[in-house]
């Protein structure tokens, strides 16, 4: 059996006084879809950002495909920047706020990585870009700038941009939470199709129905630690922790509750 494409061990991360991740171990197997859930402020975003080192943990080990990093005191120095670029080429990331390049067309956004990073010849990059735009249902938006796209379309371009690096893993941080509710489905469908194709994915989301359908595993975080790590089936039908049961009751009734601002330290979340 091959090594899991993402392996985090003993991850700690603080912002100033605030300890956001307090010892997280998590690995993601090839072809697996892991959904990260948990109340606002529990460290989900920080954790997925550690999976491509957009956030540098204070301590712990991160392995991304064939790139291994030690963080904190034993942090490896030389060649790290290059290794990080290499690791990031093997992970795609889809952001809550899309972060499309506004000065480039939809196609321009998608082929930027293939052209500038993978160094594909232009014709090949364009062919790849067109294929990916078609895959996310936006072939006709090829030459349109992001400002002319709806939120759902922007996020689908962002997914195509991530896929254009032909990554081993795609990370999603609340891909629908900046969108109007009626636009969620078009984005979730694309992600679902990727799951069907066997793509390895880590998805932060509050959408329980979607999570239940798409996830192989649900990882529930609270207060910077993993509270529950179970199959989707077990997580939703017989959660072992009271904390998870409370959370599920709340999101089932209204998704709005968990989108509330992060609770202050010491205050019980939700």
């Amino acid at each position: 059996m091959t090594k899991p494409p993402i392996e985090l061990t003993g991850i700690h991360k603080a912002f100033g006084e605030l300890e956001v991740l307090r010892g997280v171990d998590l690995s993601v197997e090839r072809g697996e879809v892991v959904v990260l859930m948990g109340p606002s402020g529990s460290g989900k975003t920080t954790l997925v950002r550690c999976m491509n080192l957009l956030e540098e943990p204070d301590s712990g080990h991160v392995r991304i495909c064939d790139c291994a990093f030690s963080c904190g005191a034993s942090r490896d120095g030389r060649g790290r920047a290059r290794l990080m670029q290499r690791a990031r080429q093997q992970t795609g990331m889809v952001f809550q706020q899309f972060n499309l390049f506004p000065h480039m067309t939809a196609l321009g956004n998608v082929i930027e990585g293939p052209r500038q990073v993978r160094k594909l010849p232009t014709a090949e990059a364009i062919a790849l870009g067109e294929r990916l735009l078609d895959r996310v249902g936006l072939a006709d938006k090829r030459d349109v700038h992001p400002s002319r796209l709806s939120g759902g379309q922007k996020q689908r371009v962002a997914i195509a941009r991530a896929l254009a690096m032909e990554p081993e893993v795609v990370l999603f941080d609340e891909p629908t939470s900046a969108l109007d509710p009626e636009l969620h489905a078009e984005v979730l469908e694309v992600i679902q199709e990727l799951a069907g194709d066997g793509m390895t994915m880590v998805i932060v989301t509050h959408e329980t129905h979607f999570a239940r359908e798409v996830a192989d595993r649900i990882v529930f975080m609270d207060g910077g630690v993993v509270v529950e790590d179970a199959t989707a089936e077990a997580f939703f039908t017989r959660p072992s922790k009271e904390r998870v049961r409370t959370f599920l009751r709340l999101v089932d009734h209204s998704g709005a509750v968990v989108d509330a601002p992060a609770p202050r330290v010491g205050e019980e979340a939700v």
Partner: peptide
């Protein structure tokens, strides 16, 4: 977020500066 998006596709610093 523009720096982050460029980083996330493995683009090096100077290229990110120039292109993005």
């Amino acid at each position: 977020g523009q720096w982050e998006a460029a980083s996330s596709i493995g683009m090096p610093y100077w290229r990110t500066f120039r292109r993005i």
